[in-house]
Structure formats: structure tokens, C-alpha cells
């Protein structure tokens, strides 16, 4: 059985949906952060599959930039998370009610 582009795309869609569900459903900010990284991984997989099927090295360059954006997001996101934890004393997004209280 040969692999087609759709194999990779359906896998990427499934992983992206898992990440999106995690980002919507979970209330722990650390796990929301990791769900976003799962979505990044799915996007990179889809880009890689498209680059392979169209034989475009530019697609791989795009993944290179996605990795860079992801690491910047990791650095700033984690520090923001720590700052929010220091200020609110909780990691659950539904308990962060600075504006309401």
C-alpha cells in the first residue's frame, strides 16, 4: 500500500484537533501551553508533507521558521506563565479573575 499526501494530512488534522481540543478544554495553563505546541507539531507535519509532494525546498524553509517562532513562543510563553502564577497564585485559567475581583 502506497502512502499518499492524504495520509499525512489526515494525521496532521487529527493531531491538530487533539491539540485544539486540549487548548479549549483544559483549564491548566501549563497544559494549554503544551496543547499549543502539539498544534505547532501538526502544522509542521502538514507543511513537510506538502513540501515533499511538491518537491519544494521552500516548504522546508517555512518549517525552519516555524521552529524558530515556536522556540520564541516557548521562551516568552513560559515566562508569562511564571509571571501570571506569581501574580495570581494559581495555574488554572478559570481562577485568574483579576478583573472581576
Amino acid at each position: 500500500m502506497t502512502l499518499t499526501l492524504q495520509h499525512y494530512l489526515v494525521l496532521a488534522v487529527a493531531i491538530f484537533a487533539v491539540g485544539a481540543a486540549g487548548a479549549c478544554v483544559r483549564r491548566n495553563i501549563l497544559i494549554i501551553f503544551m496543547s499549543i505546541q502539539v498544534m505547532f507539531g501538526a502544522a509542521m507535519l502538514a507543511l513537510c508533507a506538502f513540501a515533499r509532494w511538491n518537491l519544494l525546498p521552500e516548504g522546508k524553509a517555512a518549517i525552519f521558521f516555524v521552529i524558530a517562532v515556536m522556540s520564541a513562543q516557548a521562551a516568552v510563553g513560559l515566562v508569562l506563565l511564571v509571571a501570571a502564577f506569581r501574580r495570581c497564585g494559581t495555574v488554572f485559567v478559570d481562577e485568574m479573575r483579576l478583573l472581576r475581583d
Binding site: M44, R52, I63, I67, M70
Partner: peptide, 17 residues
């Protein structure tokens, strides 16, 4: 990704992510 012919990116993903 390595299976898709991008070994450098596979190494980068493991190293960075």
C-alpha cells in the same frame, strides 16, 4: 519528517522542541 525527506528538520525538531 525524516521519512518525508527532511532529516535536518527532524534533527532540529528533536533538538529545539
Amino acid at each position: 519528517m525524516a521519512l518525508l525527506g527532511a532529516p535536518v528538520l527532524a534533527a532540529l525538531v528533536v533538538m529545539v522542541s
